[in-house]
Design a protein around this nucleic acid. Structure first.
Lengths: 110, 110
DNA sequence: TGAAAATATGAATACTTGTTCATATATCAA
DNA sequence: TTGATATATGAACAAGTATTCATATTTTCA
């Protein structure tokens, strides 16, 4: 009857350090530049310059944020000549993105 | 073949201001104190002092963070005499919490 | 009304972090 | 090797924010 897996799987004994990691993880989604980069990557991999052009951002801004996302294993790099292509490392990233998106769109609809 | 629903439901035309709101939304989960408060509330409503005691935090810290969560409609207050009880406003909050938690636990398992 | 309990708030501080600018590194082509 | 292209990085600055401390509200009870 209950289709919400998050309730069935609710954990009651989460260590503080795991909660800390969880908050650190959500921080990566808590920046406009990064969320726009993640959004772009939902459609596939992109080079640094492609991202910068599509988002109308300076190259260094994109590069700085990509380093953060790469260090956190949210995106993975692939070199092709002089270009670096980045793509989402984990399929869960899109799930979290869309879960949040569904939430705010749902609230806006009211 | 593709079992990832987030790809099937991918939205390609998200306005920048919606992406901004989305990042602002995720910021609420990007703080240790708030994520611990949210975690506590997954089990039900709590008074301010209960939260402060369980998390070993000063009352003003909890109150400040509750104001942020309340303003963002993540939690809702209920007065009972001198006490204020707070609970999660939206059932999606728990879903997002657990989606992120599942993700980092999955990565730790590797 | 006065005191106590519970919560909220304001200002100050310290800390974090995103952007900017300049520059460095890396790769390719001639 | 030299120049051009693509990306990365470091330092400095500015803006945002979580915590602390003190104090203000609000409510209950004697």
């Amino acid at each position: 009857m209950n289709t919400c897996s998050y309730i069935k799987n609710a954990r009651n004994d989460i260590p503080v350090d795991v909660l800390f990691e969880l908050s650190e993880f959500f921080k990566f989604f808590g920046d406009t530049t990064r969320i726009r980069i993640i959004h772009l990557m939902l459609s596939g991999e992109l080079s640094v310059n492609e991202i910068a052009e599509k988002l109308n951002l300076e190259q260094s801004v994109v590069s700085h944020q990509l380093r953060i996302l790469r260090t956190a294993n949210l995106v993975k790099p692939r070199r092709e000549g002089r270009k670096m292509f980045y793509s989402l490392d984990d399929e869960h990233i899109g799930l979290i993105f869309n879960t949040g998106l569904t939430h705010i769109l749902h609230k806006k609809g009211k």
